[in-house]
Design a protein around this nucleic acid. Structure first.
Lengths: 351, 351
DNA sequence: CTGAAAGCGCTTACAG
DNA sequence: CTGAAAGCGCTTACAG
């Protein structure tokens, strides 16, 4: 058995202490960089640790000290580049704090999410960063508070009684709509997809409010499929039939990418005949042709913010719940252009 | 202090045992689903665990049993969608085994990688899936073997003395080159970027061998920048000057996406004037217009394979090192087309 | 099938 | 600044 092999030649703190002719307590203090130890003693102990190949056993330490230097991150989807960037931000901060991330994927399923949260709790994580699966109940978060498990919600929220790091979606939508309206567009649609959660709702509401404020139709909201190829096939929803639009605000850049492909297939020139505004501004936006105008939401910064909220809470458990709501920023590129007399929507009239 | 709070009302196995009027050992057997316990006893203990809100303490169990149900995954880069899909595959298998993934990002830096591996070791991971940073020395892996830390290399390898799950890059390159050659192309370039490692080398060698086998110039290999916008700006390298190509095989789909944008900017029609073949076939390939011909490498399946290799090794530490080398598969779409008399490269002659 | 006991490797008061 | 001792919550033989 390997584990036996590993166990056999494991050198413990007691071995180190003996070789260095100090007590185990002293050796422990050296590891934890306590100032109580003299410089010579410290040097001697550290030399012995080197020599013996001592490996600190977090498992033993955590049992005694009741902290694991481990945090759990639960996200609903690994494949969306948006979440990847979020994760990179979380990882940077957690890593810098000498801690380590246990990552799990809920697949946006509440039942799975529950299982995974239990698992993380059993693993003794010090805290959790959770992007709640769609349909997550408030009671879940309350339960975790009851568990005394420090938690921060990220991107989506189910309660205000708990830290949250996210995006001011309403402000982002307003920028997108205002931008298109100022270019002269009036038939502006919102293309959405995916499961319903707070970020979904905030985007829809933000779009509607922004349209209303401009005196435009707030109900021009259309759901598209989830898979990118299927989104492309759905592009006609915006350009055909009685309800034609000259511009679309997209739920995220994935939708924008799909619609962009679909409009191309329909022979419609984006940035001339039709305007498209993405949301999130992931790396692909810059690589698309024409380049995609998109509302940047800075997922990496949000990840960092969420991790910092959690570290703060670990240090000060009694802090009141805090919110970190980042203002998004419209990046104007080529996919949005001046309205040119509805070359599309009213083709028949003008043609 | 929160940790005190948590500690105070923690219910332990002993509490459960007392309430259920059994010994602690019996309660432990119930948890581990031992068949030694009678059905009634099991039911009683489980009811009490429910009632008391007992949480299994992995930390304590791992200390005694010397296994943590935790594995470490070290990847060089989170942001490339290729790695994300790999990770999704790993996660699926590890999760199904009731284990949990500790994820770290080496940033392709050997020094950081070393720090992170030490950290994982201190955390007591049962094994590690490593995509070695560029320039990783064989001695690193040897050291880990010495540590008795089960390891599988994924995508890149630095030694044959250790499990490996990866791609038959040479076969993939052959398919790409053969495809273009059969379309009539003779001036085929290879566009590469990124740090040098085994997968890089295998792709280059594979391209050269495939070209040679076709009697084509194996030295038409050109390095492009790393950032996608900069790749776009470098597209002229393939279409201008004395060494013009009519087709490019790309190191990966990121390069293909960048070149695609750059060729668009140059007014060159991909799939008509110029052929492009990507590598990896990530989701974007299907979303590009024209759709990208690409060599699929199935990162998710490779992730699953790597995780299975690791689980096997945990079960049987003395297994000989194994290799899982997946055959890639060319997906022909629209970006590659019949050579039409070098409308580009020999424009001056023919025009 | 169950109970009493030892021990995994550390940290933490408590004396000195 | 250091040493001896208790204990974190579990698992594992070992008797019964």
């Amino acid at each position: 058995m390997l584990s036996e092999g590993r166990k056999k030649n494991r050198v413990t703190l007691l071995d180190v202490a003996r070789h260095a002719s100090v007590s185990r307590a002293t050796a422990s203090l050296v590891i934890r960089k306590s100032p109580l130890v003299s410089t010579e003693t410290r040097a001697k102990v550290e030399a012995v640790m080197q020599e013996l190949g001592y490996v600190y056993n977090m498992g033993a330490a955590r049992l005694r000290a009741d902290r694991s230097l481990t945090i759990g991150v639960v996200i609903p989807n690994l494949v969306n580049p948006f979440f990847t960037e979020l994760l990179a931000g979380i990882d940077r901060v957690i890593d810098a704090a000498g801690m380590v991330v246990i990552l799990v994927n809920s697949g946006d399923l509440v039942a799975r999410q529950e299982t995974l949260l239990t698992r993380m709790r059993e693993h003794g994580v010090d805290g959790i960063i959770l992007c709640p699966a769609a349909e997550t109940e408030m009671s879940l978060v309350e339960k975790m508070v009851e568990w005394d498990l420090p938690l921060v919600q990220v991107l989506r929220r189910v309660t205000d009684d708990c830290d949250y790091a996210g995006v001011d979606y309403a402000f982002g939508m307003r920028q997108a709509v205002d931008h298109l309206a100022e270019l002269g567009h009036r038939d502006i649609a919102f293309a959405l997809h995916g499961p319903v959660h707070s970020a979904y709702q905030e985007r829809v509401d933000g779009f509607r409010d922004a349209m209303q404020a401009r005196g435009l139709d707030p109900e021009n909201v259309i759901r598209v499929p989830h898979q990118i190829a299927a989104i492309a096939e759905a592009a006609g929803l915006f350009t055909e039939g009685s309800r034609r639009s000259s511009a679309v605000v997209c739920f995220n850049d994935v939708v924008a990418l799909g619609l962009s492909a679909g409009l191309y297939d329909l022979g419609i020139s984006i940035g001339r005949d039709f305007s498209l505004v993405g949301f999130d501004d992931v790396a692909d936006a810059e690589a698309m042709r024409p380049r995609l105008t998109s509302v940047a939401t800075f997922p990496e910064a949000i990840g960092e913010g969420a991790a910092k909220l959690l570290l703060d809470r670990l240090a000060q458990p009694d802090l009141a719940p805090r919110k970190l709501v980042k203002a998004p920023q419209l990046h104007i590129r080529q996919s949005s252009a001046i309205w040119r007399g509805s070359s599309l929507g009213r083709q028949q009239e003008s043609g």
